[in-house]
Each structure stands twice: as C-alpha cells, then as structure tokens.
C-alpha cells in the first residue's frame, strides 16, 4: 500500500471525517438493504414464514440495532444533501464546515423525535 504524505490539504478535520462517515454509512445501508429485501420477500412464501422471521427481529437487541441504522440513514441523507450543496451552490464550499454542524444538529433533532417513540415501541409493555 502506498502511504500518503502527512498533512496534505485534504487530510484530517471535518472534511475528511464527514467523508469517512458518509462512506461507512453508505456501505452499511447497502448491505442492510440486501437483507431487508430478502426478509420482506418472505411475504411471497406465506404469512407464517414472514411473521416468524420478522418476529425474531422484534427483540430489544434488534430494536437498538434499528436505532443505529436509522441514525446512519439520517446522517447519510443530510450529509448527502450537504455534498450536493457543496458541489452545486456557489457558496457551498465556503460553508461546507458550517453545513456539517447543521447536518449534525439536524441528526440530533431527528433522533430526538424518533428515539422516544421507537424505544417505547421496543421496550414498552405489550
């Protein structure tokens, strides 16, 4: 593996780490989607088969996994819009760093709306 020289223009800081996070979340969502289409396809087998497999997902551990998945999707979605703005909006590159904090703020707000509801569904009685 060739090693990159230290301290180039693009290394480190918000720009690089948001790119890493966008990449990691993108691949994770992709592999989840493959499995998600497969399990949903069980509706074509029988109601019993689908309910049996979905039932194994309706556990606290899977519920936490879903929370992480939703967070990954929400980050990827908002940061994807930020990427498009950096590319197409004339002031985008100048505000790329500010926009990353806006993305993270929107992520927190969205999760604050989602998590209580979801965790109640996962951990609440019946």
């Amino acid at each position: 593996m060739p090693t990159a020289p230290a301290g180039t223009l693009y290394r480190g800081r918000e720009g690089m780490w948001s790119w890493v996070a966008h990449r990691v979340t993108g691949v994770s969502i992709f592999f989840f989607l493959l499995v998600h289409v497969l399990d949903t396809s069980l509706v074509r087998v029988s109601p019993e088969a689908y309910n049996a497999v979905i039932g194994t997902y309706q556990t606290p551990i899977m519920g936490l996994g879903e929370a992480g998945l939703v967070a990954a999707i929400v980050f990827h979605a908002f940061n994807g819009l930020r990427i498009a703005l950096v590319d197409f909006w004339s002031k985008g590159p100048r505000y790329q760093r500010v926009m990353l904090w806006v993305v993270l703020g929107l992520l927190v707000v969205t999760m604050a709306g989602f998590l209580p509801r979801h965790l109640m569904n996962v951990f609440g009685a019946s």
Partner: peptide, 21 residues
C-alpha cells in the same frame, strides 16, 4: 418509509404480514 413504518401507530412492533398486506 421510515415514518410510516416506525413512527405511526405502534411502529416496528406492529409490522407483520397483515401490515405489509
């Protein structure tokens, strides 16, 4: 998709064959 399946009603808990149907 996420809103209708996870937030409305009983969320994930309510997903089964009848829901998809």
């Amino acid at each position: 998709h996420l809103f209708v399946n996870l937030m409305v009603g009983d969320g994930v808990k309510a997903i089964d064959f009848a829901f998809v149907g």
